[in-house]
Design a binder for these strands. Structure first.
Lengths: 351, 351
DNA sequence: AATCTGTGCGAGAACGTTCTCGCAAAACCC
DNA sequence: GGGTTTTGCGAGAACGTTCTCGCACAGATT
């Protein structure tokens, strides 16, 4: 079962009775060709169903019109799907295709993926970096001069364009909403890597989004004049069991928080879980705020208050910037920060 | 700002003092090369940071080790993200990369996407076809002999491998669960294209998944001996407003259903919405079953009963099959149907 | 000593495009 | 009508690989 050999431009040329060069000119309209031959070549091409081989074209041109996407497939946070769709759609609008790789937050996979995509001659990369500390593979030397845009997470040491969201101010707004509603005991459930189960001492390393969110907690609590003694900061590992244990620890403390802020949705789910087990009704017995809006957060009863991030915009802006850098090199590096919005629903009780 | 020219195999050869041919043999170990020269070439390559240009390689080899994915980005049904991740991961496991395109259920976009991906010389395609009736672009003539695997939806007229799920039996199980719990008035909210708002008469065209689900309703209702008069079948358009209107119609009928089965999650969300507005508690005043499991369906209070489909398996099996067809042509066409599982939670009340 | 077998390697074609260059013929200019 | 410009087109190189072929030389066989 052999593939029937696809017609090449040589076949078109032969059928039209012209040279390859002329056929190419006629089809891609450049150079000088007479109207008559253009017509002749076009119809010859149509007759045999000729489609240009983009691989050969890319070879010659030096551009594949393809961008590589290195992302973390993470369902609970409603980021992967929204960002991917936005990026794919925006790329298509600019006539680019997207080669996608999932790293599952594994730095080795990320490293390998970047290499593979570069080998496939992508014109540029959009990367959600999984680690803030390990990034030599994103250093300019290894990229062969091809542009990279980071999304969702910044890496300050790298001079790469990044598109992130202003999670700090959204989080601050969330804290202020809760305190305005009478909450005085605040619980912060913060995801951290490298933490065994959970701990109340801040870990050395946190990805930029989480850092931004803790900054937001902090300024919000200061503005609302909540003393440190009334704040419970718990850093915990990214597994449901850890989150549940951490939450149990919080709820069983001497002065349990009345509202829990989670730095990602896995933790919010753990809160729902534990609250359900303990018979605590969200929005009445226990309040909850999480990050990233989703159809489900809006549709649940009660609706979950969220710090909404413009994920689609994040993706499409990343594509715009990348395409700009691809098509007119020498652009200056920018760090774009998109505004977030606190969406108040009924998961935060009025005390 | 010119890209520094990437080192080619000619550079490696020169540095190692051998010919291009030998350098190629040494690096891709084939043919006959002495151990000594292999070593020499390898280290020369490492020194100048040579990476083979996969584009040129693909040209020569005739294979890009790339598969095209044409999918519908649809968040609410927890299909897009899970399927995409599974496909990307499975492809990577076979050393293939994935070129992804979203069609948003637009047949013209789908047609164009298939062409573009073929032009980019993908070795095969995985497609979620948006329309059962329009599929000449998936006919073998246009594919240049490259294999295609359909997922999620079958198109019976095409002799293409497909991987789908047995939604009928899952749905039947759901109906039987509800009737076992005492429900006697059943409402079916069925998504349909081409329907103005909503209607109780079955439309001519339905995608295969929806057809399977209605078949499941039917056999379940028959087995449970629910007369037709106690079933309310409503077909409605894929917009929230239509779903809400359709549900209002159902609830305001003479004998309103006590349980609603929805054929997709947009509709389930509409049910949650309307129930919330009317002060009906899900799992007590109104019961609900929908399709596709998700973290949210499990975490909500009450948990939503769902017909769970093995979406990850669907994706990875599609990749296996496609890779098989790519690497050993002449495989026979198969229509794989994966089992579904009804997951009973508390959104269905016991009457 | 003459022939055979096998090893290591280089020259050059091929994949399917684009694009530079040159050349002939047509068009223009005074 | 001689010169200059413009137009249309073909030959062939180039992109960076792989791979066929053939050649030289080593060792083995007769």
């Amino acid at each position: 079962m052999q593939r029937p050999p696809a017609p090449t431009i040589a076949d078109v040329a032969e059928r039209a009775g012209v040279s390859q060069a002329t056929a190419s000119r006629a089809l891609s309209n450049y150079g000088r060709v007479s109207k008559a031959t253009v017509e002749k070549v076009r119809s010859a091409a149509a007759e045999i169903g000729y489609r240009p081989n983009e691989l050969a074209r890319a070879m010659r041109i030096g551009s594949t019109r393809t961008i590589g996407l290195v992302i973390i497939a993470d369902f609970t946070n409603a980021f992967f799907d929204r960002a991917t769709k936005a990026i794919v759609d925006a790329a298509r609008a600019h006539d680019y295709q997207v080669l996608i790789t999932n790293t599952d937050e594994d730095i080795d996979v990320e490293r390998q993926a970047v290499l593979t995509l570069l080998d496939k001659q992508v014109d540029g990369l959009i990367v959600v970096p999984s680690l803030a500390t390990e990034h030599p593979h994103l250093g300019s030397t290894h990229l062969g001069g091809r542009p990279v845009v980071l999304i969702d997470r910044r890496i300050d040491e790298l001079s790469l364009t990044s598109v992130t969201t202003d999670d700090a101010s959204g989080t601050r707004a969330a804290v202020l909403d809760a305190t305005a509603k009478g909450h005085r005991k605040l619980g912060f459930l913060i995801s951290a890597v490298g933490v065994p189960e959970f701990t109340t001492v801040a870990p050395a390393e946190m990805i930029s989004t989480v850092r931004d969110r803790t900054d937001g907690y902090r300024t919000g609590a200061i503005d609302a004049e909540i003393p440190a003694a009334d704040q419970l900061w718990v850093y915990c590992a990214d597994e449901p069991i850890s989150s549940e244990a951490a939450l149990a620890y919080m709820l069983d403390s001497n002065t349990p928080p009345t509202v829990i802020f989670t730095s990602n949705n896995d933790m919010a789910l753990a809160v729902l879980q534990v609250a359900g087990q303990r018979g605590l009704a969200i929005g009445r017995d226990l309040s909850l705020v999480t990050v990233d809006d989703s159809v489900w957060a809006a549709a649940m009863v009660p609706g979950i208050s969220v710090i909404a991030r413009p994920v689609e915009e994040l993706g499409s802006i990343a594509v715009e910037r990348l395409v700009e850098q691809i098509e007119t090199p020498g652009q200056k590096i920018e760090h774009l920060v998109l505004p977030t919005e606190y969406v108040s629903r009924s998961s935060v009780a009025t005390l």
